[in-house]
């Protein structure tokens, strides 16, 4: 892999092996030992059957309990990369390990125990006639007993803030709410890894705030959260690590501050840093500022 970017500071994260969310979340079962824990990609290449090379040699390590935002323009390979993490796609060459498990040897359904994946379009996913049943579908597939399923459904609905919608029909809800139902239906599977594909699309401010809270709570529960997003403010504010993809390669990998202080590489990925970072750069600030507070501090105004 061509490492023009900054070396990730991922290794500092220690595994919160059996963390619980306020005692409500189920124990997260960790299969891997310390050196195999986490998601490891070894020189992963992927070519679609039509011959389009979507990933061109990606090597990454995502440790347990990290929060990672994946950014990059459309067609950069973000969703293709994410689909490798739960075995929906198997690499053309290279290998993907999740907690030491090689995805090539497992079906996607078997990987679903480890990695939850929320799709961009909720309408590809929702099919039950009631939100409760919808959210319960995943945990039932994993073979959990009824009382555990019910506990997980309520826990997940609480995390995304849709407790009031459990009796409703998913298709009576607005798109943004259906999206939250789709997210809850994957969170309820209580997997140690949760992947969100463009969760903030179509969400209003309160919806985005709900998602931010969700990321924080999942992190507190010891889970690894990986989000694909075009929302740079969301990526900068709520994720500890940002990975920028361009043309099927990783071009930047580091903390939001590190990544968003590299406008040249970001331009390669056709990504604009958050508004405050751009303002700070225009003002000639040395350091990268990502929010209003940081900007005011850097200007010596607070």
């Amino acid at each position: 892999m061509q490492a023009t970017g900054i070396k990730g500071t991922a290794a500092k994260t220690t595994a919160a092996a059996t963390a619980r969310a306020d005692g409500k979340s189920e124990t997260v079962e960790r299969a891997g030992s310390l050196d195999t824990a986490g998601i490891i990609l070894e020189d992963v290449c992927y070519e679609y059957p039509g011959g389009v090379a979507a990933l061109k040699g990606i090597s990454l390590r995502i440790s347990q309990n990290e929060t990672v935002a994946i950014i990059g323009e459309n067609g950069a390979g973000k969703t293709t990369l994410a689909k490798h993490l739960n075995g929906l796609l198997k690499p053309t060459s290279g290998r993907v390990f999740v907690d030491g498990v090689d995805t090539r040897g497992r079906t996607c359904a078997a990987m679903a125990r480890l990695v939850g994946f929320v799709f961009q379009n909720p309408d590809d996913q929702l099919f039950q006639n009631q939100v409760f049943k919808e959210i319960a579908f995943g945990p039932r597939n994993l073979g959990y007993p009824a009382d555990k399923v019910e506990r997980l459904v309520k826990w997940a609905a609480g995390l995304v803030g849709i407790e009031g919608l459990l009796e409703r029909h998913p298709f009576d809800l607005a798109l943004a709410q259906r999206k939250l139902v789709a997210i809850a239906s994957v969170v309820a599977m209580d997997t140690p890894y949760v992947i969100l594909d463009e969760p903030t699309t179509g969400q209003d401010y309160p919806g985005t705030q709900k998602l931010a809270t969700l990321v924080a709570k999942l992190h507190a529960a010891g889970k690894t959260v990986i989000a694909i997003t075009h929302d740079m403010e969301f990526a900068a504010a709520h994720f500890a690590r940002v990975i920028a993809l361009a043309g099927g390669r990783v071009i930047l990998d580091g903390t939001p501050n590190e990544v968003f202080s590299r406008p040249d590489e970001l331009a390669m990925a056709s990504v604009e840093p958050p508004q405050m970072a751009r303002l700070g750069q225009r003002l000639g600030l040395e350091e990268c500022v990502l929010d209003q507070e940081a900007l005011l501090r850097a200007l010596g105004l607070v």
Binding site: L88, A109, F119, L126
Partner: peptide
């Protein structure tokens, strides 16, 4: 199909399993 497999729905393998995978596919 991808979305439902990601939720642990086994779509590969025996006929009965594939048949069970049918409903979650047809609805959406």
């Amino acid at each position: 199909l991808d979305a439902q497999r990601s939720r642990g729905l086994e779509t590969e393998g025996r006929l009965i399993q594939r048949f069970r995978a049918f409903l979650p596919l047809m609805g959406p």
